[in-house]
Nucleic acid binder design. Structure first.
Length: 478
RNA sequence: CGGGAUGUGGCGCAGCUGGUAGCGCGCGUGGUUUGGGACCAUGAGGCCGCAGGUUCAAGUCCUGUCAUCCCGACCA
């Protein structure tokens, strides 16, 4: 790794300046462009293709678990937004308001949705009457707006794309099951599709969603040792139902409140994809999510038969893998770097020497390993290689996370880890908000989650030293 | 919202004590090249972020404003 030649000079190296590396990568790989609107980004075709793959796969998993897609309005009347107290308070500082329609001032301001709980609730109130109407398992794909102070491509923008699931159930038990079911959908999706290992757990009261009874989360760890909340699933209990009057008549002819959940994943996950797998040459995409899984680079393409052969190979692979051929008259070396920067998992080189030997050269993006493959076994070997890359990316990411996961028994250990080797810290917590605040203030780290998989690090709270039974993952976070 | 930095062809930059804009890369065309970012020739492209002001004269000085990046406080 150390003496590996750096092929691409356009990207700042990760160790030198991680933030700059990130910006270089998203720009140079053509995922996004900055727009003339402050805090908003243009998602370019290559970036949007990644999002489309994420959408397709998530949507499939949502449908598989019985959900239906709907579309809610972009605007929320002020009165509607204010119905649930905690919810408004949580979002108030970051909503954008529409005050005028054309020349005329509106009698009631409209908020540009920062999330759609209130709209779903307002609708559920109208369409739910009987226990026979339940459950309602809705999801919507849309964009939302949150007026953030500082922004970064994918990680935090004023407008971002996401999906938000909103469900209503007859009982608290069903709502809880749904909350966990969808958390698991997210976790499996991240691990299997994006090759990103995640920690599943519950948020502390301080960190939970405005208006939720419980918030569950999957947390992943980036290359710089910062954590990124990669998906959340909330159990609302009947809090929103009471605020909005969503009641149904049960079998026993009693009026009861519904129990609700919501869950979301956003384009932010693309930021995780970049920061978990990327390296100094640019993006590294797991094959399952990569818009281009294999790029064919003809070498000495002016020579007779080379291009023909390259196209023949492409046609054989079409339909089996997402394949692209680059027959532009750029130098082969230029093309190599270009597609590495874009994170294409597999490259196929084909030139006169290969044709002579009836072979092609396959090069893995993740470790640049070269495989010489007989043309007769092309399809099989390509699929095999993609599979290998997918799995080894997951393993590498897991290894990275484990290397950056530490345990702290007391505050001194905790501070030292945060300073010297940023990453996840497993430490005991007494459950008090003051300790969370204290840790945040003194170290910058926050409670990422109370993991389902508990371990006993010690008996005492890492902060106050009093009796503790809960182990918490802490980290600095995006 | 505080602290710092930066806005000049598509990108990266130069432009001193004011005198009307230049370099590299990229781009177009023709040719030679092609196994890790080729070369020659030739050509196109800029009211210097925006708005005021000072001046005979502003990319350069002054004021304001907008945007971007980095570091902190708040959030997916």
């Amino acid at each position: 790794m150390a003496q590996e030649k750096k092929f691409v000079e356009e990207i700042t190296s990760m160790n030198e300046d991680f933030a700059q590396w990130y910006t270089d990568v998203v720009k140079k790989s053509e995922l996004v462009d900055y727009s003339s609107v402050r805090g908003c980004m243009i998602i370019r075709p290559y970036g949007y293709a990644i999002w489309e793959n994420i959408q397709r796969e998530l949507d499939r998993r949502f449908k598989e678990t019985g959900h239906e897609n709907v579309y809610m309005p972009l605007f929320i009347p002020e009165g509607l937004l204010q119905k649930e107290k905690d919810h408004v308070e949580g979002f108030a500082p970051e909503v954008a308001w529409v005050t005028h329609g054309g020349q005329e001032q509106l009698t009631e301001r409209l908020c540009v949705r920062p999330t759609s709980e209130t709209l779903f609730c307002d609708h559920y109130k109208n369409v739910i009457q009987s226990y026979r109407d339940l459950p309602k398992l809705y999801n919507q794909w849309c964009s939302v707006v949150r007026w953030e102070k500082t922004t970064r491509p994918f990680l935090r923008t004023l407008e971002f794309l996401w999906q938000e699931g909103h469900t209503a159930h007859a009982t608290a038990e069903e709502a809880q099951e749904e909350t966990i079911r969808m958390l698991n959908v997210y976790a499996d999706f991240c691990e299997e599709f994006l090759a990103i290992p995640v920690i599943k757990g519950k948020k502390t009261n301080k960190e939970k969603f405005a208006g939720a009874q419980e918030t569950y989360t999957i947390e992943s760890l980036m290359h710089d040792g910062k954590a990124l909340q990669s998906g959340t699933s909330h159990n609302f209990g009947d809090g929103f139902a009471r605020a909005f009057g969503i009641q149904y008549t049960d079998r026993d002819n009693q009026l009861k409140y519904v129990h609700q959940t919501s869950w979301g994943m956003s384009t932010r996950i693309i930021g995780a994809l970049i920061m978990v797998h990327g390296d100094d040459s640019g993006l590294v995409l797991p094959p399952k999510v990569a818009p281009i899984q294999l790029v064919i680079i003809p070498v000495q393409q002016h020579r007779e038969g080379v291009l023909e052969k390259a196209y023949e190979l492409m046609n054989r692979l079409k339909g089996k893998v997402r394949v692209k051929i680059d027959d532009s008259d750029k130098m082969p070396g230029w093309k190599f770097s270009e597609y590495e920067m874009k994170g294409v998992p597999l490259r196929l080189e084909i030139g006169p020497k290969d044709i002579e030997k009836n072979q092609v050269v396959l090069v893995r993006r993740d470790n640049r390993e070269k495989l010489f493959v007989s043309m007769d076994e092309l399809e099989e070997k390509v699929l095999q290689a993609l599979d290998t890359v997918q799995r080894s990316l997951y393993e590498k990411a897991l290894e990275m996370r484990e290397k950056k996961t530490f345990t702290a028994r007391n505050f001194e250990e905790f501070s030292e880890i945060i300073e010297k080797t940023p990453g996840f810290i497993k430490a005991m917590w007494c459950g008090k908000r003051e300790c969370e605040d204290n840790i945040k203030e003194k170290t910058g780290a926050t409670a990422r989650c109370i993991p389902f998989q508990q371990e006993k690090i010690s008996d005492k709270c890492v902060c106050c030293g009093e009796k503790a039974e809960t182990m918490v993952y802490w980290a600095k976070a995006y």
